[in-house]
Amino acid sequence: MITVQQLSKSYSTTKGATIQALDGIDLHIDRGDIFGIIGFSGAGKSTLIRCLNRLEEPDTGSIIVGGQDIMLLKGKELRQARQKIGMIFQQFNLLDSRTVFGNVAFPLEVAGKSKAEIRDRVTDILELVQLSDKAGMYPSQLSGGQKQRVGIARALANDPDVLLSDEATSALDPETTHSILELMKDINRKLKLTIVLITHELDVLQHICNRMAVIEGGRIVETGTVDKFFIQPESATSKRFVHIVQNYYANRFLVEGQGAGI
């Protein structure tokens, strides 16, 4: 579904130095997969996912989504391609000037749908994210989890093939995180949607991802299944991640004896 080849991106700082945010990224993501990209802060994961719909402009490389090279598109073509790539954000980024209904309707207005089509589609999609009763409310009246559900509904409005999740659960408490992850799993199954998510939370990977990549210093240092990552981490970064968890369990064992857990 998504193939990234030799993707590079550098920033120049105000002091004139250049920072290589992405350095020759190669990545392949299968159709219908839930693909996780994990990395410590500053590894380049956010830049990577934002390059996939060109919110961030890469320097070189190709990004093929559903057979179309996103890097070659301009203006209107790019905007049309973006309608088929939904995105959700850590800070939700809902419009305060619009109700829940209005927020979900926004992408449909952009796509030029008629009022009747918009009403039907929004009703359906709000049902899918279990927010039918909140259609008339404004974002400020919702909890974090509900806001992210609206974010997901908005991202799904134009029936995309791909959903990009930029740390979508990082601002939520564990219980809400769990329910959002369940929802993502659910839409992945129901809509045959390919999901790409970036995170620094191991729980998120364990919970919903099939395959994953580890990013460090703008390079992919390891790819494979989530199981392999936890059982047989190869790269130094993966080992660091897994050791953090193992140390935690070991300490809990020492302090509280056998049977201690989370």
Binding site: N53, Q91, N93, L94, F106, N158
Partner: peptide
Amino acid sequence: VAGGKIEAAKSVGAS
């Protein structure tokens, strides 16, 4: 206006 709202609009293909 938060930059994130503009990015969200861009991400759904708004001109």
